[in-house]
Design a protein around this nucleic acid. Structure first.
Length: 246
DNA sequence: AAATCACCCAACCGCCCGGCG
DNA sequence: CCGCCGGGCGGTTGGGTGATT
């Protein structure tokens, strides 16, 4: 891959651009280097001309995506921490699928990563519950089972698995979302030992994804109640709790 | 050991919006 | 006002990989 940085971009005509067959698919190490070097030297923006001037046979969009989602120096990768999960749950409940907006509150995480997390994990749990992620049923399970459990995991881990950042905002979110410990407990949460959360935070996805939802949901005994009444009462209690807090 | 399955995630696609001539 | 273009966003897809049979 030749590096075209020296070429005057204005002389790099549209015709040449059109004649170049654009590459697609996975990025090579060489392409990554070219892109990083070019952005280091010239900054980002103007992605189409950037792609041309850097000598990359990629669309501007492709370059932008590669930079933002992968090459940017401050990009964090790896498992989503419980703190981050908590924030995602809370912010999604507030803003819906506004992934970029949500990502702004999770430093180093990209909208793409959060979106992937939501689709692969959260929606899967909803599927296991045979309901929609937007349904009351799922929101209740999230709020009264998932969130308290995440809070517990964060506390058990000392609440600082992401030094300097996640501790406060995530627990703040937890406080806003979780009515109270005692309230959570009244709902007879499942035995943590039986559903894969006893490992003290050594997050193995298989354990996270173990089929907890059915047994968990059975514990709630929802089918024995009129569900709308049940959920309505939960929301009411939540409102009361919020009023008490603020 | 091989085949199949399930999952994850990087990358692409299509749409939309705002700026500009 | 209109059309074009760049950029951003959410949705979707397909390859890679690890788990399971």
């Amino acid at each position: 891959m030749e590096f075209q940085e020296g070429i005057n971009c204005s002389s790099f005509t549209e015709v040449q651009g059109e004649e170049m067959d654009l590459r697609r698919g996975p990025w090579t190490v060489e392409e990554d280097l070219v892109l990083m070097n070019y952005i280091t030297a010239h900054g980002e923006g103007r992605w189409n001309s950037l792609a041309r001037c850097a000598g990359l046979r990629r669309t501007g969009k492709s370059c932008r995506l590669r930079w933002l989602n992968y090459l940017r120096p401050d990009v964090r990768r790896g498992n989503i921490t419980p703190e981050e999960q908590l924030l995602i749950l809370e912010l999604h409940s507030r803003w819906g699928n506004r992934w970029s907006k949500i990502a702004q509150h999770l430093p180093g995480r990209t909208d793409n990563e959060i979106k992937n997390y939501w689709r692969t994990r959260v929606q899967k749990h909803a599927k296991q519950l045979k309901c929609d992620v937007d349904s009351k049923k799922f929101k209740d399970v999230m709020r009264y089972l998932w969130v308290p459990r995440l809070v517990e995991r964060i506390r058990a881990a000392g609440g600082a698995s992401v030094p300097g950042w996640a501790e406060e905002p995530a627990l703040g979110a937890a406080k806003r979302m979780s009515p109270s410990d005692s309230f959570g407990m009244q709902l007879s949460p499942p035995d943590p030992v039986s559903d894969g959360y006893e490992d003290g935070g050594v997050a193995k996805r298989a354990e996270d994804d173990r089929d907890w939802s059915e047994s968990v949901y059975d514990d709630l005994a929802l089918p024995d109640l009129d569900q709308s009444t049940w959920t309505d009462s939960l929301w009411t209690l939540e409102d009361i709790w919020l009023q008490e807090q603020f």
